[in-house]
């Protein structure tokens, strides 16, 4: 039953204050997020060109075009495929490896050691994506470090592993750059999650004779579920929005199709080719995809038991 608030009640006062505190956030969201989304949606229903003064309302033609035509050789379907490959190839290993790294770092007994590793893993996240991609492009060059390492590991000599020219290797290269850049960031998030689990639970497990492996699966992982969900949502959204790495690689002369992720296609279609209506339609499609995945992940979380210490 809905609780009726009496005039001048403390609850009513709290509601007022609560609303007042959320107003700046709501205004910020409305101006910088909600308005652009609405504006992009309205633009997606037009044939707006960046430099033409006039444009017409064309309904959902941009959407039908994107799913049926090649967009000058750089189709949306190819971009969806490139984005899916990148997201799955990056997000899954990133969540798993960052969790493993976080657990390993937490096992270190000396705090100085754990801080050193945290710092080392986190440093790439601070570096600009453009700088990171440029550095990695040099490493992936035929005469670069990666071919030398590959030749050493594979016991070959002078073989070009085509890190920037072969389709699969090119995709792997962008995944490596992204993985290297963000693994530390997600490791820190997991460390924060792990640190919030009360040590008394582990002590009880040790007393009960639980092995480390068993403790991890039966205690750590279930209690870490909210962090896992948070990290996986953040990692997935970040992967879906990837741009700088692919853009810098294409600027460096690699083929565009294998790594033509949606954000890059939006950029080329809107900013380079001036088709603002069509690129807005792509943005809305990307927005809906991200919305769906986020909803799915939240639903998965709701399906389980709530975690309480």
């Amino acid at each position: 039953m809905k609780k009726k608030l009496t005039p001048y009640s403390i609850e009513k006062k709290q509601v007022r204050w609560g609303f007042l505190f959320t107003v700046p956030c709501l205004v910020f969201f409305a101006v910088f997020s909600f308005y652009p989304i609405i504006s992009a949606f309205l633009t997606s229903l037009t044939n707006r060109d960046a430099i033409r003064r006039t444009y017409d309302f064309i309904g959902f033609q941009n959407y039908t075009y994107l799913f049926t035509q090649s967009n000058g050789g750089f189709s949306l379907l190819n971009s969806l495929k490139a984005t899916a490959i990148f997201t799955v190839g990056t997000f899954v290993p990133m969540v798993v490896v960052s969790l493993i790294l976080a657990v390993l770092i937490m096992q270190l007994r000396k705090p100085g050691h754990s801080k050193m590793f945290e710092l080392a893993y986190y440093t790439p996240a601070v570096l600009s994506s453009v700088v990171a991609a440029t550095i990695w492009m040099i490493l992936f060059q035929p005469t670069g470090l990666f071919n030398q390492i590959s030749n050493f590991v594979m016991h070959t000599s002078g073989k070009d592993y085509q890190w920037l020219t072969n389709n699969s290797m090119l995709r792997a290269s962008t995944i490596i750059v992204y993985f290297w850049k963000y693994i530390g960031y997600f490791t820190i998030l997991f460390i924060t999650g792990l640190a919030s689990i009360p040590p008394t639970i582990y002590e009880a497990a040790i007393v009960d004779g639980s092995s480390r492996w068993h403790t991890f699966w039966k205690i750590t992982l279930p209690l870490l579920k909210p962090t896992v969900v948070l990290v996986s949502i953040m990692a997935m959204l970040q992967c879906l929005k990837t741009f700088s790495t692919q853009y810098m690689f294409v600027q460096g002369g690699t083929a565009r199709e294998p790594i033509d992720v949606i954000t890059m296609n939006i950029y080329y279609t809107g900013v380079v080719n001036r088709r603002l209506g069509r690129s807005s339609a792509m943005s809305i499609i990307l927005f809906l995809i991200m919305l769906c995945f986020t909803y799915l992940q939240f639903s998965t979380q709701k399906g389980g038991d709530d975690v309480e210490y």
Binding site: T143, N147, D160
Partner: peptide
């Protein structure tokens, strides 16, 4: 000039 396949 190449070192194997790698152009130098």
């Amino acid at each position: 000039l190449r070192d194997g396949d790698i152009i130098t």
